[in-house]
Every structure is written in structure tokens, then in C-alpha cells.
Amino acid sequence: MPSLFHLFSLLPLWLLHGVGAALGWLVFLVSGTYRRRFLQNVHQAGYRFADVRAAVGHAGRMVAELPRMWLRFEPPACEMVRPDPVEQAWARGRGIVFLTPHLGCFELSVQAAARRWSAERGPITILYRPARQAWLAQVMETARNRPGVQAVPTALSGVRQMIKALRRGEAVGLLPDQVPPDGQGLWSPFFGRDAYTMTLAARLVQQTGASVIIARCERKSWGRGYTLYFEELPLPLSDSLETAVLQLNQAMEQTIRQCPSQYLWGYARYKKPRAEQSAAAQVAP
């Protein structure tokens, strides 16, 4: 498996995306559990399968492009559109919380932002949970700690480092539609159905006054690269944690609806959280 992973990292993007699209459809056709979850999530959001069928192939493309994103330091072509909200957020001097759902090449979102701003503004801090397989854990450690990106553990120490980074006027990055462990989230509507949603993003903003920037990195066709978009929240985040979490879910919905064909509809967004007690459930000053 490590050799295959390294081989994939050397392939051109157009070939990776072609192989990935085929892989996505193969899994969709073979796995009844995955297919049912995919279709249930699509219908929950009010779409027909015909509206988002391209998302089947994009799920495979996401898997196939990971070796390149993790192991190669020369960046793929990424066009950055409307960076003004980010520049305005930096000017406020209170740090930035970058949020992106499981849409498009979310791995590249933080890498591209770091290449653009980290030399001047400091590294972007992200949470990192090591893989259980030793070879994959080594690969991920190399991938996460890239120039301009600082990976910290999913523990109270990592959360404290995120808070310190924000208070220095730096940035952090999170996937807010990822289901957190039990005790680290709230049940909040997502496309009209309650989903267990992390509170960390909202707590970081509430404690530090940081700006929230929504990022989405869409794949271009035929392996021609990516387009990265940035948006601010339409309204300031509420002081109420429950309301703030709902605001972020609604922001994720709006972002996904701008490119539903590249969202990971097969992700188990409505699953029950795993039982895990972790210090990261708390955000300490």
C-alpha cells in the first residue's frame, strides 16, 4: 500500500481524476450501504440524484488526488477568486477561522491559503489526528506539517495552540461538518435534519473575536486544476453557542448549494457521535 500511495503521487492530475472517477462509481455500485446513505443525504437536501450524480465521481477524485496533495510540495494550479474578504479580515487584526465543508479539494484550501499569506501572517494551524496504520501516520505527518501549515493534536493542548494563534492575529482551519466525538458538539439542523455538530469553531470565534471565512476549492474539469473561493459570514456570529452552531451549519449549507456536485454526499453526516472523552471538548483561555 505505501508503494501504491507513492506511485499515485507521481501521476498527472488528469489521470488521477480519471482513475478516481471510475473508483467513485465502482464503490457506489458495489456498496449498498454507501449508496443508500448517499441517496438519503441527497434527498434530505432537496436534490434529485440526477442533479448531483457528478458527485459520485468527485468522491473518487478526492481519494485519488490525496497522494499528490500530501506527498508533492509543488502545488497544482489553483486560481484564487475574490480574496478581498480574507484581506479585510487580516486588516481587522483578530485572526481568521477558515471553515470549509467536505466539498471539492478541501485539502488544498488550507495549502493554497498558506502559500498566499503565511509568509506575512504566520502559519495556519489545523487539528491533526494520527492514523492507526503506521505507514499512513508517517505520510500524514509529512502532509499536515507543510510550509505555512502547523498541525496540532486533537487534544486540549492543540486547542490552546489554536487560541494562541488567533490571539496573535494568525489563522486556523477546520472542517465544521465533520461529526465530532460525543461531548464535543450539539445537535443542530443541517439540511432540515438534526446532525451532531462541532462547537469548537463557534467557541474559538466567541473567545477570540476572530473573523470567519468560508472557503471552497472546486475542481476544474479534465485535471486542469482548482478554483478557490472565499466568503464571509453574512452576519456576525451570535454570543449564544446554540445559535452560533446553527449559523455555521446554515453557512455550510449555503456553500454546498453553490457546488452540490462536488460535495461528499456519502459522508455519514447524521451518524451518532462516537463515545470518546477528550480534553478538546473544552476550549480553555
Rank of each mutant, 00 (worst) to 15 (best):
R160Q: 12
R132A: 14
A59W: 08
Y229H: 07
G192S: 05
R37C: 06
R116Q: 13
S238Q: 02
V52N: 02
A55P: 03
I214F: 04
L29N: 08
A64G: 05
T33V: 15
R72D: 11
G158A: 12
L200T: 06
R121W: 15
L204S: 01
L175S: 08
R274P: 11
A210Q: 03
C217Q: 03
F106I: 05
M162P: 00
A77V: 06
T199I: 07
S211R: 08
A171H: 05
M198L: 12
L204Q: 05
A155Y: 13
F8P: 08
A279V: 14
L237A: 07
F230Y: 08
L16Q: 04
V42K: 02
E232Y: 04
V149F: 07
L15F: 11
R269S: 04
N41A: 02
I163L: 10
A45N: 13
A119S: 10
V283G: 01
G225N: 03
G209A: 07
Q161F: 14
E253M: 09
M1H: 15
M140A: 11
L4P: 10
A114D: 03
Y128C: 08
L241Q: 01
V212I: 07
G266L: 02
G183V: 08
A284N: 12
N41I: 05
L16G: 01
R121Y: 14
K271W: 11
K272D: 14
Y263D: 01
S278I: 15
I124H: 02
A77S: 14
A210G: 09
G18I: 06
F106S: 02
G183L: 09
W187F: 12
Y226F: 10
E141G: 10
L10N: 11
S261C: 14
L264V: 03
A171K: 01
F230Q: 05
A131E: 14
R61G: 06
P2H: 15
K271C: 13
A279F: 13
T125P: 04
R219A: 00
V63C: 09
R72T: 10
H43P: 09
E120Y: 11
E276V: 14
P153A: 03
P147F: 04
Q262K: 00
L108W: 05
R160H: 06
E65R: 06
A114I: 01
A131H: 15
L241A: 02
A202I: 05
E242F: 10
V212A: 00
E120R: 14
R219C: 04
R37Q: 13
K272V: 15
R168C: 14
P76Y: 06
V159E: 02
P273A: 10
A137Y: 13
L29W: 15
R68T: 06
L66A: 02
T33S: 15
L7K: 09
R224P: 00
A91G: 10
R116N: 02
